Simulated scan of single mutants.
Amino acid sequence: MDTSTTPLPAGYHDVADTMLATIVTCLEMTARPAPRANPPTDGLTVERWHSPSLDDYRALYRRVGEDWLWVSRAVMADDALLAIIEDPAVEIYAMMRDGERLGLLELDFREAGQCELSFFGLDQSLIGTGAGRILMNVAIEKAWEKPIQRFWVHTCHLDHPAALAFYQRSGFKPYKRMVEIFEDPRQTGKLRADAAQHFPILKSE
Rank of each mutant, 00 (worst) to 15 (best):
P174Y: 05
N38S: 11
R133C: 06
E180A: 14
P185C: 02
A31W: 05
N137Q: 09
K203N: 06
A143D: 02
T155G: 00
A89G: 05
M76K: 13
D79Y: 10
T41C: 06
R97G: 01
F166V: 09
K173C: 05
D184N: 10
A10P: 06
R150G: 02
Q149G: 15
W49H: 08
G132N: 09
G103I: 14
P200L: 05
E106T: 12
D79S: 10
Y12A: 15
S118P: 03
P200H: 08
D108Y: 06
A143K: 01
H13E: 10
A139C: 00
V24D: 12
E91L: 10
Y57F: 15
N38K: 00
K176C: 07
G128K: 12
K190F: 11
F109A: 02
R101D: 01
L60D: 00
K190T: 04
H50M: 03
A37T: 14
G65K: 07
D42H: 13
G171K: 03
M1A: 15
I134V: 15
L82T: 10
P9L: 05
F151C: 01
H154G: 04
I127Y: 09
F199L: 03
G189W: 03
M19K: 13
G11Y: 04
H50I: 12
A196W: 01
E205L: 09
S51H: 15
L126P: 03
D14A: 14
Q168N: 08
P147W: 05
F172M: 12
E141W: 05
Q114P: 03
M96R: 07
M29S: 12
T45K: 14
I92V: 13
T41P: 00
R97A: 01
A162D: 15
L202Y: 04
A112H: 12
T45D: 09
A10T: 13
I181L: 12
P52E: 10
A193K: 15
I134S: 08
W49D: 11
D78M: 11
S204C: 02
V24H: 09
V71S: 04
T129S: 13
A16H: 15
F182P: 01
P200F: 03
S125H: 07
L82Y: 06
M95G: 04
K203T: 13
I148A: 04
A94C: 07
V138C: 07
R36L: 14
Q124V: 13
D98H: 10
W70L: 06
S125R: 12
A139I: 04
T129A: 06
A77P: 03
R73Q: 11
Q124L: 10
S125V: 11
H198Y: 11
K190P: 01
W70I: 02
L202P: 02
C115L: 11
I84G: 02
D108I: 07
